[in-house]
Every structure is written in structure tokens, then in C-alpha cells.
Design a protein around this nucleic acid. Structure first.
Lengths: 187, 187
DNA sequence: GGAAGCTTTCAAAAATATTTGAAAACCCGA
DNA sequence: TCGGGTTTTCAAATATTTTTGAAAGCTTCC
């Protein structure tokens, strides 16, 4: 077998990254393809058009279109334009921390806020205050209100970290600085 | 329609909570049933056996068994025993914060660590150091190493928050105390 | 207005994930 | 070792999610 050229190596590394990020995508509850499109744009750092994505990832036009739209909504990619070109090009946010904040924001919105909402609704379904409130209702309300409190705290923390002021990294770094913990390095 | 009894109200509230938590479960990437089993144990606060779960949630024995096992692995429920009874009973962790930490721990394990692992592997696929390393390889490595850094930070933060020392809540509260942000209250 | 070039939509097909249920395994006590 | 009560396993059935592809929709330029 002939030695690989540099660009073949790079291509392979990109593909492996795309695969890894795609797999994480499905774990994170987004479609694998959507994650792969994002991975490709991120890892190349280039502005690509739909046909290039379809070609490289072997996906249909419909799928590419839907994935791009979703990624735009998440705020992790944006449209770009090439001089006289008619078609749309897309670029990924290159600042990893900004990307991470966008993801966090969206995930809090999907994974925490609806729960807080529901908890509020559930807690209206029974009286837990009056003199006549049965013990069991108080117990239930106790559990639900604790849970609501914790998740509200999480949502607020999320906003703080991911918020537009971009303080996330600094806060985190500060926290960590206090007392280092080890973390395995090798693959 | 006759007025509902107190216990019917409570039952309905429990059901709505179970439903809400179950829905969140699927958003979080675990099976809806698994989340529902957990919700039921949590919301009642009682020790229940498999047949009771099956009855209340209308699920099969196999499903109940697998869900319970998974919940035990997550560390959010534990086995209990009733005096002379032969069968197993299960109780949910009642401390919401402890529960949250268990979930966080597990999610970092599934959603962050494999990625860090993969990033390490991908970065071994090309030379980016030597004098001969092409510009494109350096760029690629730059992107990947930044991403690795961010996710390692996240993993470390997660450990800090969720770690066995149980400092999570305090740290969070401290952070929040500094500069309050508003959060909508009504359902 | 019309055609070319692109993108979006969406119903149907394919791929995945979850659930069932019955058989196998397990665990004790007799 | 056997038998009854209980839990686990896992292949098949079901349900859900994702992907495709072709038709419909835009937009821009002639």
C-alpha cells in the first residue's frame, strides 16, 4: 500500500471527527445528519454550499436543507455569500466557546424550561395550603416544589453561563482554578 | 359531574407529573418508560414492587425489569426490602439535588467523555508538529484542540458540581447570589 | 411573463429505538 | 433435588424518528 498523502490523512481525520460528532449528536437528541453537517462545516472552517455537503456526506437534498435550517436556528452556523454566486453558502461558528454557549442555551430551552412549566401546572391541580389540605397533598407539593427549585436554579445557571454577555468561560475557569482535579489524557 | 375526592386529585397530579417527566425523559435520550418509572417512584415517595409499577403504568414485566435496572445504574433509585416479603421493592432517591447530581454525572459520562476520547484519537491521525507539518494540518489541529479544551473543562466542571463531595448546590447558589437574574414564575 | 437555478416541503420509505411476552434463569426453603 | 415465586433475557412486534426524492416554491435575470 502506498504511503498516504498529507491531504488524505487530513481528510481521514476530518471524517473521523465528523463521525464522532455525529454519534454524539444522536446521543444529544439531534439527528445524526444535523450533527454531521455541523461537524463538517466546523472542521473544515470553510464556507460550503448545499451540493458540497450532500456530496461529502452522502445525504439527500431534503435532509441537507432541513439540517441547515435547524443549525441556523441553534445559532451554530450562519449564511455566507460568495461574490457573484447565486447559491447560499454556510459557515460554522469557529469560536468553540461561542458554539458551546449556543448549544447550552438551546438545550436548556428544550430540556429544562418545559419541565419547569409543567411543574407549575401540576402544582395547581390540588390545594396544598388551606387548613383542610391533607398531609399527602403537602408531601406531594413539598417534593414538586423542591424539584422546581432545583431546575429553576439550573435554568438560571445556564442562562448565566450561556448568556449573551459571554462570561461563561471566565466564570468556569475561575471556579476550576480554586481546586484542580485531574482528568485522564490519553486516548 | 360529582366533585373529585382529594385522592383523585392527587392521583391526577401524580399522573401529570409522570407524564411530564416521561416526556422529558425522551428529550434527554432515555426511554420514556424508564423516566416514568422513576417519576412514579419519586412522586409517591413509596417503595413499590414490580407488579405495582406494571399495574400503575401499564407496562410489561420485561420493560419494568429493564427500566429498573437502568435506573439503578444511574443511581437514582435503590432496592428496598419489606419485612417478610420475598420480592424486591424500589425507592427513588428523595433528595432532588442528589438526584440531579446523579443525572449530571451519568450524562457527562455518556455525552462528553466519549467525545473527548475521540478527539484525542483523531488528533493522532496526522502530524501537526514537525517542521514539515502543512499549514492545513496546523489549522485542523488548532480547531480540534480548542474543542478538546472546552469539553475537558466542561467535564471537569461537571465532576466538580456532581462529585461525591456534594458541593454542587452550594457552588451554584454562590454563583447566583452575585448577580440575580429574573425568571418567569407563572405557568 | 417565463425560464433557470436553488431551496423548501412533505408524504412515503427506511432506519432506529422501544416494548412485549414467553421461555429461561435464579433463588430459597422444604 | 424439587417446586413455587420472582426476575431476567431476548427475539419478534410495535412505535418513533430520520431520511429520501420528487414536486412545489422562491428569486433573479432576460
Amino acid at each position: 500500500m502506498p504511503p498516504e498523502t498529507d491531504s488524505a490523512q487530513l481528510r481521514k481525520a476530518q471524517d473521523r471527527f465528523i463521525d464522532a460528532w455525529g454519534r454524539m449528536g444522536s446521543v444529544w437528541g439531534i439527528s445524526r445528519t444535523m450533527a454531521e453537517v455541523h461537524a463538517l462545516l466546523f472542521v473544515t472552517g470553510e464556507a460550503l454550499c448545499m451540493d458540497e455537503l450532500m456530496e461529502r456526506l452522502n445525504i439527500s437534498r431534503g435532509n441537507a436543507s432541513m439540517s441547515l435550517r435547524a443549525l441556523l436556528e441553534w445559532g451554530v452556523i450562519s449564511k455566507a455569500h460568495k461574490d457573484g454566486e447565486r447559491r447560499d453558502y454556510y459557515v460554522a461558528e469557529q469560536d468553540v466557546w461561542a458554539m458551546f454557549r449556543a448549544i447550552l442555551r438551546e438545550r436548556v430551552k428544550r430540556e429544562v424550561e418545559p419541565l419547569i412549566e409543567s411543574l407549575g401546572e401540576v402544582r395547581e391541580l390540588y390545594p396544598s395550603q388551606g387548613r383542610d389540605a391533607p398531609e399527602s397533598a403537602r408531601e406531594l407539593d413539598q417534593r414538586l416544589s423542591e424539584m422546581q427549585e432545583v431546575f429553576e436554579l439550573v435554568a438560571t445557571l445556564g442562562e448565566r453561563f450561556a448568556g449573551p454577555s459571554g462570561q461563561g468561560l471566565k466564570v468556569a475557569a475561575k471556579l476550576l482554578a480554586k481546586a484542580p482535579t485531574r482528568r485522564k489524557a490519553k486516548a
